Each structure stands twice: as structure tokens, then as C-alpha cells.
Simulated assay, not measured.
Amino acid sequence: MTVIVPIDGAKASVKESGAAAAAGTRERVGVLLVNLGTPDTADTRGVRVYLKEFLSDPRVIENQGLVWKLALNGVILRTRPARKARDYLKIWNTENNESPLKTITRAQSEKLAAAIADHDHVVVDWAMRYGNPSIRSRIDALTAQGCDRLLVVPLYPQYSAATSATVCDEVFAVLRTMRAQPTLRVSPPYYDDPNYIEALAVSINAHLATLPFVPELIVASFHGMPQKYIDKGDPYQSQCVATTDALRQRMGLDAGKLLLTFQSRFGFDQWLKPYTDKTIEQLAKDGVRRIAVVTPGFSADCLETLEEIAQENAEIFKHHGGEQFAAIPCLNDSEPGMDVIRQLVLRELQGWL
């Protein structure tokens, strides 16, 4: 779905456009890549600041009532940050003193800018929904560079209210404070886009070719979500199923060779099943000795892929009898991954270029 918000004051826009044309200048188009977010530092304080912003979003935790606030401030933010900080330290980019998600998203932005450099009036930037650089700061930077049109690209292949929608919420909140709003487009999810499915298959096969073993099956692990969110109408689960079905068809695998699971449970509610950790544990108990795990719901490697899957779930598998475990990287800023983003952006910019 494309969302279009007109600039404030059609007459003013026409006059400004005419003035720009008379002066021989061109209005610019901004492209803003947005991913979920990351702490600024891999310590307890940095993680606490990040978690407070993340878990205070009613799109993420829908019931923000008194009980939740007491639990968040009285228990979760007192205990969880130290544990998560230790997890972040396991994967932290110490050279740049930042998380891999920030490193990769910056690289995606830079490579996209280079790939569409022939459109010299397009400015590419990137932001995080939670943490830094903030959406507000980057929209301000783009408009300061003369961007009167803005394409926001949530880097989530599958839509959910807790990811794509909250990006829109924040963008709209920023625009609400602006008198001269840029015209806005928001790119749609690309869960069944042929380019995306092809890139996944190419990336998976290339990685499998480098392994010293042949996996007996592949687990496709997506980020989880409370079941009640789906029951209220969130399309996320159906889009994860569609991605997996398309990938199975492209790779010639049946449901027994490419499993669909959901990871990263939090709290006590029932989440989408089957659970990744429980599935991997059961596979090992059932005698499966070699598996690979791919995470098609993530456009860039992050804590959930590099630590939760590649470390925690690998340990679960081996602890219960598994022998060889491979975590297949996300598309990241690889050539196939960048081709997906480039084609998505160029498609959504039609009429503006």
C-alpha cells in the first residue's frame, strides 16, 4: 500500500515549485531506510534506555495499563538489561562500537545510494525506529537538504503492526509537527516479491555450498508474535506462511524439508507456534543430526539471528544430540539483498524520477 500525504498548502507548493523551476533548481526526493533499532551501547544503561523506548510502544505491548507499567519499571527494566547487555557483547561490532544491525543498515543505505547514483536528485538515508539515528533526526536532515518528497522503506519483508505500522506511526508523528510536510510514500511489505524469494534461494544455496556437511533439513525461523495479535487481524502470520511456501516452491523442498517456526517469545502469553527452540530441541531428540536455520523475516543480522539463533539455538540442538548446525546469514548488504532493496525502491519511486 502506498500512503500519500500532501504538502501543507497546495497553492504554496505550486508557487514554491514554480520558483524552484525559475531558479533552475530541482526539488529532491528522500529515501529513508528504517529498521527496528538497537542500543547505543552494549552495557546495562544503554540496553535499559533502548528497552524502555521499545517496550513502551503500544504497538509492541498493546496493553500499556498500570499492571504493565509496574512490571516494566519495577521488574523488567531492573533485571533484563544486564542479561541482554551480555548477549549484545557477544555480537557487538567493537571496531565501530555499535551493533551489527546498525553497521549493516548503514551499509545498505550507502550501497543503495551508489546503486541509484544516476538519479542525482535522490538522497538516501537510514534510521532506527527505536534508538539512533532516530526517524525524526533523519527526516529533518532530508528536508534540510531540499527533499520535498519522501519514500519511507520499512526493512521488514512481512508486515505487522508491531514493526511496519509503528514506523508509520513515528513518521506521521514527525510530520504532524511540520508546517511544510513532504509528500510521503511508504513502501509495502515484500514477503512474496519474486525478487526477494529469488534472493533468499540464491543466498541459501550459496551458503549451503560452503558447509562441510549436508543439512537433513532447513528451519525457517521468523520473529514471533502473541497469538492474540493475529486473532485481532494482524496479517503477519499469513505473510510468513506465504514467504515459506514460495521459498519451498523455488527450492523444490516440501514441508518436511523446510520447516516454519517462530522465535523470540517474551512474557507469558501464547505466541505463534511452532516455537523455534522447542522444534530444534525435538528434532535433535528425534535423531536429526544436521540442520541449517534461515531467518527470512530479518533483512539484516541482529541480536535475534547472531546470538539467539547462531548461539543459543545451536547449543540447544547440540545439547539434545544434534551434531552440526549452521545459521545462514540474512541478506544484509549482499549483492542479492541489495538488488531486492534497489528494485523495491525504484518501483516505489515511479513517477518521481
Rank of each mutant, 00 (worst) to 15 (best):
Y88D: 03
L89N: 15
I91P: 04
W92G: 08
N93G: 05
T94W: 14
E95T: 15
N96P: 13
N96L: 15
E98Q: 12
S99L: 06
S99N: 11
S99Y: 01
P100E: 02
P100G: 00
L101A: 02
K102W: 07
T105V: 03
T105K: 04
T105E: 04
T105M: 01
R106A: 10
Q108P: 06
S109Y: 07
S109E: 10
K111F: 04
K111T: 11
K111I: 11
A113L: 08
A114G: 14
A115C: 12
A117F: 06
A117W: 04
A117I: 09
D118K: 14
H121L: 09
V122A: 00
V122F: 00
V124S: 01
W126E: 09
W126D: 12
W126R: 13
M128W: 01
M128F: 02
M128S: 10
M128G: 03
R129Q: 07
G131Q: 02
P133L: 05
S134R: 10
S134K: 10
I135W: 06
I139E: 03
T143N: 10
A144M: 09
Q145H: 13
D148R: 15
L150G: 01
L151C: 07
L151K: 07
V152R: 08
L155D: 02
Y156P: 02
Q158E: 04
A161L: 11
A161S: 14
T163Y: 02
T163N: 00
T163L: 00
S164F: 06
S164M: 03
